[in-house]
Amino acid sequence: HNGKLCKLKGIAPLQLGKCNITGWLLGNPECDSLLPARSWSYIVETPNSENGACYPGDLIDYEELREQLSSVSSLERFEIFPKESSWPNHTFNGVTVSCSHRGKSSFYRNLLWLTKKGDSYPKLTNSYVNNKGKEVLVLWGVHHPSSSDEQQSLYSNGNAYVSVASSNYNRRFTPEIAARPKVRDQHGRMNYYWTLLEPGDTIIFEATGNLIAPWYAFALSRGFESGIITSNASMHECNTKCQTPQGAINSNLPFQNIHPVTIGECPKYVRSTKLRMVTGLRNIPSIQYRGLFGAIAGFIEGGWTGMIDGWYGYHHQNEQGSGYAADQKSTQNAINGITNKVNSVIEKMNTQFTAVGKEFNNLEKRMENLNKKVDDGFLDIWTYNAELLVLLENERTLDFHDLNVKNLYEKVKSQLKNNAKEIGNGCFEFYHKCDNECMESVRNGTYDYPKYSEESKLNREKIDGVKLESMGVYQILAIYSTVASSLVLLVSLGAISFWMCSNGSLQCRICI
């Protein structure tokens, strides 16, 4: 991952900044910058967002509201009850120091605090018919004063009620008058409520006091790749198909172990950190130390980045220098085999997901714990399936590479015959000098055995068991695999060879 928040398929997220979902939807004055928000790819909250409900109280069923919003990608904020005409018999300019803005008392931008007009609070009834052709999110509140005197001074009615009804919602609220500790300079409380109004449905408000009335509502448009994440990451000019709280993932790998919460087309989250597919040879310690064997393909974004291909070729060293050249036929066979294998694994496992966190309130801790156990169970199954699949494929890959290298080895052996000696570690020792032209003939299969047989015969008789390297004779190393990324691999195959001279070296080696 890149540690950044990015656009998702070209669409920017909605960053709530210092506000949370509650503050944004109710219209906390400190969240005025969010009022123009219309569309987004996903919503970003920060872990310690401080601006929620400015007048103390709870947004009821907040967790369910977050779940609903996680599939919303755009909205239209509109005046559901026009301020100047909807409440002619009531005062609608209630403000509070708890919702101060720029040093002055204020109130929510989407709600109206209705109080008595003169000395009376006549029963009010108002309704709205949803003609938007889509779901409408309606929010309101109920004020709970701290004393009967406060109730009387604001609403005149000691036994007030609030009723809200639609086809799918029907509740009646009565204020709970009680002494409470002071929070944000208030002994009173406000509880906030919401409902989704279906197209064509009607919502009716009736009250004799204590109503925090809707002013603006939201017509919602769903987008199934949307979601809500909690993150401290910063926004950058970048684009992605998959976003996590820790950063964007741009990967076609089937798995990731970065974060379980994802938005967009994302690899499946697994616990494993070692889900690797081999593309090189079986481990040979001396070669492995030099980083030549054991190439791997990573299938977990965050564990290993991208696929690494092994390729086969020849390396030689003689009086004229040293050089490398790919054996294109065996390399292409290996590439085709690995590509098919990788595609097979991805096809089997690479279903892209959006995974969002589930919200539970403080009273639902047991449910949250149960949900976590269920999620953990599914996660263990996914991890096991992934590891088992790759384990089985790896064994076949190792066998496949062994065969490829063996074929190259036999190709060289059949040409050199007794003009060189096998020394048991995949290397041959020449009994004759071999210049670049000679080396090329070994690589392309045109090695002239009779041409060098007499010199080889004489050297075999002279050496008589002495280690060949100390006599200045020449080696050919018969097994060799270097490691390159897919891009470098293609470039390498396009070149005939490249040279690395070893000044004054008397050794001649050709490596497979």
Rank of each mutant, 00 (worst) to 15 (best):
S234Y: 01
H236D: 15
E237R: 00
C238T: 05
K241W: 00
C242F: 02
Q243E: 14
Q246P: 07
G247A: 05
A248N: 11
I249T: 08
N250S: 06
N252G: 15
P254Y: 03
Q256R: 07
H259L: 00
H259T: 13
V261T: 09
T262A: 13
I263K: 06
G264K: 12
E265F: 09
P267K: 04
P267V: 12
V270S: 03
K274T: 14
L275Q: 05
V278G: 05
S286C: 04
G291A: 14
G294R: 11
I296H: 04
E301Y: 03
G303L: 03
W304S: 03
M307L: 15
N318K: 11
G321I: 06
S322K: 10
S322F: 10
Y324I: 06
A325H: 07
Q328R: 15
K329T: 11
S330M: 02
S330T: 15
N333E: 11
S344D: 02
V345F: 14
N350P: 01
T354S: 14
A355K: 11
V356S: 10
G357L: 10
N361P: 07
N361V: 06
R366I: 09
L370T: 06
K373G: 03
G377Y: 09
G377T: 03
D380C: 14
I381T: 02
A386N: 15
E387L: 03
L389H: 15
L389P: 05
E393D: 13
E393G: 09
L408T: 04
V412I: 12
S414Q: 04
Q415Y: 04
L416W: 11
K417T: 14
N418H: 07
K421M: 15
G426F: 07
Y431R: 15
R443Y: 06
S453Q: 12
K457Y: 09
N459Q: 14
R460W: 15
R460A: 11
R460D: 09
E461H: 04
G465K: 04
M471L: 12
I479Y: 06
I479K: 10
L493Y: 14
A495T: 11
A495N: 01
S497K: 00
S497H: 01
S505M: 08
R509F: 00
R509T: 13
